[in-house]
Design a protein around this nucleic acid. Structure first.
Lengths: 215, 215
DNA sequence: GTCTATAACCTGATAGAC
DNA sequence: GTCTATCAGGTTATAGAC
């Protein structure tokens, strides 16, 4: 908002003093911490430790822990919303449309694995207190609608679209959420977020979902 | 261990003073609390509040919060182990066997919805620090083996058994874990743990899984 | 076995100097 | 904008009476 011509000028290089940078760093560290521990378990001290500034800065920029949490959710959902808006779901045949949403969602989760964990914590501990409506609108309803359409057209089995949408989400995100646990199923040292592993999961999950509904 | 003949005699009815009863109550309350908040977020105070005894009893019987958590996990897994041992998986054709494990697992989760939440928290927060091995042996490996067999026999598609096992677990438990959030998809006041809703989920999930693998 | 009281510590949040 | 210091309240865990 300041129009001062000095705004863009790099300041002393000694100690970084940049509002946007600091704010961004806090958001990044907070996203990590909330993904690991949820709103309840997250520690502001731990967030600060992964930042190049002190704990006091969290309160300076975000007022309190809960507001910071909401800011993290907002940023994460902004990505989700813009991703889903790019898809022309209504104009695509159901089977293809379903693959589109699932793959779009999985691609995003692959690039931001924190999202699925945060969503899950939010659903489990906070009962969707903060993001309920937007989550339903961007995650479940699009899938539910496609399934309903697919049944009408005779492309999908006679399932309950709502239950199916929920189960599909589960099949998609579980891998990411539980990765630090299920990784023990694979050879020691296997990174479940490596490009190859992620690619395989996306393929497997999308195929699984499509096969599960197809008539 | 005490052989005293007075052991079974009911004591004064005034103030219940029964070791096993108290221990059981603490375990029950703890299971609820850990399912809601995870090891990290759980409050011993909250556990005590849902017991008819005080917080001090938790430490008297279980030493500390982490030991109590482990006791809860052990009890929950004992149920899982005994349930899976009752099934004759090796002697049953793959498709049927898979339906058997999935339904057995879902039935148990239906009756003890806490299990799925605890498993999930354990996987996410604690990275399976406490129950990793037994979880793999009782949850993932049986499914993985059936899938591998089903592919050999030509009953299932050519999938990766390991990835599929993980995705199947996700499709099964997500409904229970996220119930307080996804319930907003249904009419207000809908109880996702009601017998009808649970029955529908079990049917939908089992069908979905089978259809997703069948050739 | 169960309680009350409290110690010891942790964590969110703020004040005030720079 | 950033830091250090610190407070207030919450939380685990224990001591000791009954």
């Amino acid at each position: 908002m300041t129009n001062s011509p000095t705004t863009k000028k790099p300041r002393k290089e000694t100690s970084s003093r940049d509002a946007e940078l600091t704010k961004g760093r806090i958001l990044d560290a907070a996203e990590d911490e909330f993904a690991k521990a949820g709103l309840l378990g997250a520690r502001t001290e731990a967030i600060a430790a992964n930042t190049k500034v002190t704990k006091a800065m969290i309160y300076y920029y975000f007022e309190d822990k809960e507001k910071l949490y909401q800011a993290v959710l907002e940023r994460a959902f902004a990505r989700r919303v813009s991703a889903i808006q790019k898809l022309d779901l209504a104009g695509t045949p159901p089977a293809q449309a379903l693959r589109l949403v699932v793959e779009s969602f999985l691609d995003e989760v692959s690039q931001h694995p924190n999202l699925s964990a945060i969503l899950f914590y939010e659903a489990m501990q906070n009962k969707g207190r903060f993001y309920k409506d937007i989550a339903i609108a961007t995650l479940y309803e699009p899938i539910e609608n496609i399934i309903a359409r697919g049944i009408e057209v005779g492309a999908f089995r006679q399932v309950d679209p709502r239950h199916s949408a929920v189960n599909i989400m589960g099949a998609c995100v579980f891998y990411f959420c539980a990765r630090e646990n299920v990784k023990h199923l694979w050879e020691p040292g296997t990174d479940l977020l490596s490009p190859e592993m992620v690619k395989q999961h996306v393929t497997e999950a999308a195929d699984f979902v499509l096969a599960g509904l197809r008539k």
